[in-house]
């Protein structure tokens, strides 16, 4: 009989009408994100050794970092991600040996102005000496002992995108 296929299709759509909804009311309800989700980046500054592997792994030269030499160690002073060029491939996170750079589950990275899009993860001045490890590896020491206490943890406020 001609039209049987049409009726069958109609039956399917009717059946679907009574099944459970698959959509959620987005801004109020949200589906859970999987553990590996590629959201906004976060950098654990204490773990970072400013080696630059992440920057060289990036296909688009998204990561710009500045470091200063304090004593014998490299000290990360600036870590900016030009997120507008980022492909979220995750090569930088994979390259990080110290597990300092990670993905978060933050998906809202919208900004009203383009110059605000840039993700500034670290922006701080270099201290005279690095407080904690100073006694162990600064034989030439610049009479910085009293200062180390004063400077406390020489962390400048972290800029957040």
């Amino acid at each position: 009989m001609f039209g049987q296929g049409l009726l069958k299709g109609l039956a399917i759509t009717w059946k679907e009408l009574f099944t459970r909804k698959v959509t959620v009311q987005y801004p109020e309800e949200r589906l859970p994100l999987p553990a590996r989700f590629h959201g906004r980046f976060e950098l654990d500054v204490d773990k970072c050794i400013a080696c630059g592997l992440c920057a060289s792994a990036c296909p688009n030269k998204v990561i710009q970092m500045e470091r200063a030499k304090v004593g014998k160690r490299q000290y990360l002073t600036k870590y900016v991600m030009r997120i507008e060029y980022c492909m979220f491939c995750g090569f930088c996170v994979e390259a990080c040996n110290k597990d300092a750079l990670r993905f978060t589950h933050i998906i809202n990275m919208n900004q009203y102005f383009r110059d605000k899009v840039r993700l500034v993860l670290v922006d701080r001045p270099a201290p005279e000496v690095i407080p904690e490890e100073e006694p162990a590896e600064a034989p030439e020491g610049r009479a910085a002992k009293p200062k180390a206490g004063a400077a406390g943890k020489g962390k400048a406020p972290e800029g957040e995108g």
């Binding site: 698959v22 999987p34 590996r36 989700f37 590629h38 492909m87 979220f88 995750g90 993905f103």
Partner: peptide, 22 residues
């Protein structure tokens, strides 16, 4: 597209992205 969403969810679990997996 409803059912493709389920495939994308699976691949998102594996790779962290929904379309450009790398």
């Amino acid at each position: 597209f409803r059912d493709r969403e389920r495939v994308l969810d699976l691949l998102e679990m594996v790779s962290g992205s929904r379309m450009t997996f790398s």
